[in-house]
Write a protein that binds this DNA or RNA. Structure first.
Lengths: 139, 139
DNA sequence: TATACTGCTATAGTTAACTATAACACTATG
DNA sequence: CATAGTGTTATAGTTAACTATAGCAGTATA
């Protein structure tokens, strides 16, 4: 877990996404309590209200439940709901755009599957040519 | 070109990305003029200032040039600059996150990169199991 | 000169995201 | 009761994104 934020999306949403990731990864199990609003706020140096907002999204999605005075707990079935819902969202809304980008950049499956997970540098030296998609030739 | 916007990113940036896509796709060639600020603003029902802001990003990136009274024109070398820069950005910043998501959802990057293009419905029926990453077993 | 295109600036207002600070309400422990 | 942990609400301020509206400045044509 890095302590930094992406400028391309609001913090509260990134926060929500991290919890989702932790549930999917099994780091947080059903019945577990989420780290407290104040703790998270302190750890990430973020306003408690921002954390709360992220957590509330999870409540609204039915993934998490609040017990007053105790904390927030992951509901039973949260993970399978997530697996289904997030898959659908990803395949339907995100992947098409991503795939289009990949093709536009002339990147190959090989290229992407090579270093993939742990890599965060990037050589930008694809195996093909410099002319990726000479298909459309508008007049 | 659809006339709609994504809530996950500011309009001016999406606008910039569309022009970039058109350059990469060869729809807009070097030397060509961009559609005018006012035209785009009218067509997409968006404020001219928002369009201008998107265009200015392109100018700042050195992809586009302004000729007062005439319009904005795509610079020579814009496409190869883009191919290099966007590849690097994608491989270094976006793909690692995307790949992590794919794995979390129990999907395989291979499969997505193979078929995928024209699909936008989403079945949520991956070839593996329903338990994607049972690696971590926190106490 | 006038007309009609360009990019661009100026002014001003709305909304969403985020912030700081404080206090309230509930639960468990002592 | 007090204490210390939860989530939650209230108040108020900053910033970025977007909007509406108007006008300036340059270019080309007539």
């Amino acid at each position: 877990m890095d302590r930094e934020w992406n400028d391309s999306q609001p913090i509260y949403r990134q926060l929500r996404d991290r919890v989702v990731a932790m549930i999917l990864d099994g780091v947080l199990k059903e019945g577990d309590s989420l780290p407290s609003v104040r703790n998270v706020a302190a750890e990430y140096r973020v306003n408690p209200l921002t954390v709360l907002k992220g957590y509330q999204e999870l409540v609204d999605e039915g993934l998490v439940e609040t017990r007053r005075g105790l904390g927030m707990f992951i509901n039973a079935g949260a993970r399978s709901m997530l697996l289904q819902g997030e898959r659908q969202k990803f395949l339907g809304e995100e992947w098409p755009r991503i795939h289009a980008t990949i093709q536009r950049l002339g990147l190959t499956a090989e290229e992407l599957l090579k270093g993939a997970t742990s890599r965060s540098s990037a050589d930008a030296t694809p195996s093909k040519s410099t002319e990726p998609n000479p298909s459309k030739e508008k007049g």
